[in-house]
Design a protein around this nucleic acid. Sequence first.
DNA 1: AAGGAATATTCTTGTCAAGGAATATATCAA
DNA 2: TTGATATATTCCTTGACAAGAATATTCCTT
Lengths: 112, 112
Amino acid sequence: MDFTTILSALAEPNRLKIVELLRKGPLTVGEISDQLHIRQPQASKHLRVLNKAGVVEFTVDANRRIYMLRSEPFTSLDLWLKEYRDIWEEKFDNLDRYLQDLQIRENKENDN
Amino acid sequence: MDFTTILSALAEPNRLKIVELLRKGPLTVGEISDQLHIRQPQASKHLRVLNKAGVVEFTVDANRRIYMLRSEPFTSLDLWLKEYRDIWEEKFDNLDRYLQDLQIRENKENDN
DNA sequence: AAGGAATATTCTTGTCAAGGAATATATCAA
DNA sequence: TTGATATATTCCTTGACAAGAATATTCCTT
């Protein structure tokens, strides 16, 4: 599943709300559209996008579908985020690094 | 900074690539547009969006601007993700929970 | 079989975002 | 001062997407 696909699935406010809801447990389409105060077709459409992105899955219960979160996109996000950990933990000073790098590049330019 | 704003900033492929690039260190607009094979104005525009979302910041160096990542959006993402940790660590079985919840709801219905 | 409930799909419309091209702005160098 | 370089901004066009309304599909109940 493409990473940007996951991100744009989550970037839509109502879809993010759906994910927040599903965090507490599986829900039917009707319950989702009720709790979010959106119409059923829009809920279905948003769930379709989330499903395509691999964010949710569902099981069929006769007439209804019970949607729930999948774990994969979250592990995927976490994995991606890990690679930025030294940045957001600020183990080094961004400005320092910038000045170093700038220095290097200016020198390269002078070589030409 | 709104969470969905951060997400949609990152959801655009070229912008995500910019972020990936900046992970290795600060860069000027020109360097970014070169390495990404996009035109300078598009790079500027993407950087503007990233800046508005709080993902990047820049320092002015005379003629140029050196862009770098900010830590905040990443800590923000990580914080959000933490709330899903019991889901993506799969400490419980999704299906089990679904069946439980379903049971509860069906009973509620019969009460009416 | 018929009606009703739950959900999905289609069609339309309006809005927004991205890329291209051109231009504006600021700064440096000669 | 003039030209060149780096970056930002504006305008335009096009494509994607979200909501609304209407309809289709599936399954249950009686």
